[in-house]
């Protein structure tokens, strides 16, 4: 392979950047899917019926321990030929379902840790004040459970962004796919793939910094002292 060529770089750049919309769009779609489905898992997991609890746990464990790539392939290639329930899906939709479902199980753990992070005494005080179940969640539990999860959820957005190129394998035409096409066409891979790497860096690095800031802010607002006190078993 020849050395770096700026001409190739500037030739490939406008073409590859056309895929950025798809890449970012897919990230957001997968993420929203994961946020919503994660909520579904968390609620289902809280149903106080043992067998349901086990089944939900087992499904989540199954989804988590299978590689996302295998899940993508299954949904795109195998699902359409499953009798009765199978449907053929376009690459974008398959990717949203595949990656979204996979990460929903992780997002669900984030929700769970947020909820379980609220001290049991908060539930008891809410009961003693005779709040309804809905009021307990809305006024007492969620306002305390959500802030600490926001940095973690932000991290998953970045992770999701970095996983989305997997969708290229089932034909979603994002930046990686376009760079690959360019390489195949002109037999030049160095510049197009460098462009892809730069684009990812340019988008995820500032996001990471932003999330870091957010985390600090949440800690301040939520008053780390309170959280520490509580974990030590002291009282609020």
């Amino acid at each position: 392979m020849s050395n770096w060529d700026w001409e190739v770089f500037f030739d490939a750049f406008p073409m590859i950047i056309q895929g950025l919309g798809i890449t970012v769009g897919l990230t957001i779609a997968c993420y929203i899917f994961a946020l919503i489905f994660g909520f579904f898992w968390t609620v289902a997991d809280r149903i106080p019926i043992k067998p349901i609890h086990w089944v939900i746990r087992w499904i989540m464990e199954f989804i988590r321990s299978t590689p996302p790539l295998v899940q993508l392939f299954f949904i795109f290639y195998a699902w359409p030929v499953v009798p009765y329930v199978g449907v053929a899906l376009d690459p974008f939709t398959s990717a949203v379902i595949g990656l979204g479902l996979h990460y929903s199980t992780y997002i669900s753990e984030v929700y769970r840790s947020g909820i379980e992070g609220v001290a049991p005494g908060q539930w008891e005080a809410s009961t003693a004040l005779n709040l309804s179940t809905k009021q307990k969640w809305m006024k007492v539990i969620l306002p305390q459970a959500i802030p600490p999860t926001i940095p973690m959820l932000g991290n998953y957005l970045i992770i999701m962004f970095k996983e989305v190129p997997l969708a290229s394998t089932i034909g979603v035409v994002g930046i990686l796919h376009l760079a690959n096409d360019y390489g195949a066409q002109y037999w030049r891979y160095l510049e197009p793939l460098t462009i892809v790497a730069i684009l990812f860096l340019v988008l995820s690095y500032p996001s990471a910094i932003l999330i870091n800031k957010l985390e600090k802010k949440m800690n301040q607002r939520f008053n780390k002292k309170d959280v520490l006190e509580e974990t030590k078993g002291a009282a609020i």
Binding site: A119, A125, S132, Q144, F222
Partner: peptide, 19 residues
């Protein structure tokens, strides 16, 4: 909910709402 409205409680560890 109807019946416990008559009862109130103060806890050993206060359980104030920190937010």
């Amino acid at each position: 909910r109807e019946v416990r409205g008559d009862i109130g409680m103060v806890f050993q560890h206060f359980n104030l709402f920190p937010h």
